[in-house]
């Protein structure tokens, strides 16, 4: 039972990340009709917002100590972060909390990047074939990741969670299990809650605001909304920016779980597309539900009991489900009738 619970938690946590990325993907596809292969790169750029903030906060004053030499004979460098010089313990706290604080810079940066990406490049491909859209967005993703690699290198860069969330929570004890039977990292619990809040916020924004109502109307019938005199293109540009923000925030908060590197977006992109296809292209609810569903299934497939029955199932389970869904219900679990069915 404890192993079962742990894998459910793992699945939900993983599913949270899938759902956040897939949500943005399907939002862009539903509004603009664009298959955005650069969406994984937005997740990666979000994580590098956290890296950038940490780098800024840890900018150091370097003093050479002529008394001590390095192994290669140059004076040893004594490094102190400026922020610690200026603010003492408060400076240390800011560095410790750099990941959550990065949310504050990630929102405007990702919004701006999303708008620039849509206005500068992607809008020129609205009337082109999906194949063209895939090629240009995939190319853009490669360019973005190479830029990041040239600036930050290829190695993963550790982004620790704030010290108070570094340990694990004894969830089992809260649920009546023995002590330490079900422990789960605090940061992963926070990530799960965070993804829930972001998903709920996006749905609330689309459901309960006038802007959201217009966007939903545009998703259903773009031409009619346009005929009513509403500048739907401008709103869709903002939706693209919103999708970039959601992917970016998912990336920022994921950094203590997975040390960011330039390639992490590509690692998530394929899985997220599978999530979107299983959930139904253009279906926001489908993307979220499929994200959590596939996350949980992937976790269960990795259990030793399952793997000993069907070796290697953990590595293919998501794709097997996608194949089955596409064969039985091509529009996906929650997809609109007609989408992907012809």
């Amino acid at each position: 039972m404890d192993a079962f619970l742990l894998q459910v938690l793992n699945g939900l946590d993983k599913g949270g990340a899938y759902a956040l990325i897939a949500l943005g993907l399907t939002l862009v596809f539903g509004t603009l009709g664009v298959v955005n292969f650069a969406h994984g790169a937005l997740f990666m750029l979000g994580s590098f917002c956290a890296v950038t903030l940490q780098s800024l906060l840890t900018l150091e004053r370097v003093v050479l100590d002529p008394e001590r030499l390095t192994a290669w004979g140059t004076p040893m460098e004594i490094r102190t972060p400026y922020i610690v010089d200026w603010f003492g313990d408060f400076g240390m706290t800011l560095i410790d909390w750099s990941v959550p604080l990065a949310i504050l810079i990630a929102i405007p940066i990702m919004l701006l990047l999303g708008v620039i990406m849509e206005r500068g490049l992607i809008r020129h491909f609205y009337k082109r074939l999906h194949a063209d859209q895939i090629l240009v967005t995939f190319g853009l993703a490669i360019v973005l990741q190479e830029i990041v690699k040239s600036q930050f290198g290829a190695n993963p860069i550790p982004q620790p969670a704030p010290a108070m969330f570094a340990g694990s929570a004894d969830i089992g004890l809260m649920l009546g299990f023995a002590e330490n039977a079900v422990v789960y990292p605090w940061w992963r619990i926070i990530y799960l809650m965070f993804s829930g809040v972001v998903i709920a916020s996006v749905f609330a924004f689309l459901q309960f605001t006038t802007f959201g109502m217009v966007v939903r109307a545009g998703m259903a019938d773009r031409e009619t909304v346009g005929l009513l005199g509403i500048d739907i293109d401008r709103r869709f540009t903002i939706v693209f920016g919103l999708a970039a923000v959601v992917a970016g925030l998912a990336g920022v908060m994921y950094t203590p779980i997975l040390s960011p590197d330039y390639h992490m977006g590509m690692d998530f992109l394929v899985l997220s597309f599978v999530v979107v296809v299983v959930g139904g292209m253009g279906s926001l609810g489908g993307a979220v539900a499929a994200g959590f569903l596939l996350g949980i299934l992937q976790s269960f497939a990795s259990m030793n009991e399952v793997n000993s029955l069907i070796p290697g199932i953990d590595q293919v389970v998501i794709y097997l489900i996608a194949v089955v869904v596409l064969l039985i219900r091509p529009r996906g679990l929650f997809g609109r009738e007609g989408v992907m069915e012809n």
Partner: peptide, 20 residues
């Protein structure tokens, strides 16, 4: 002894069975 795919990224599903 469990084989994990190269580049798995998130190893949580392989680590949790270790716990118990």
């Amino acid at each position: 002894a469990v084989k994990t795919p190269v580049g798995a990224g998130d190893f949580s599903q392989y680590i949790t069975p270790v716990l118990n």
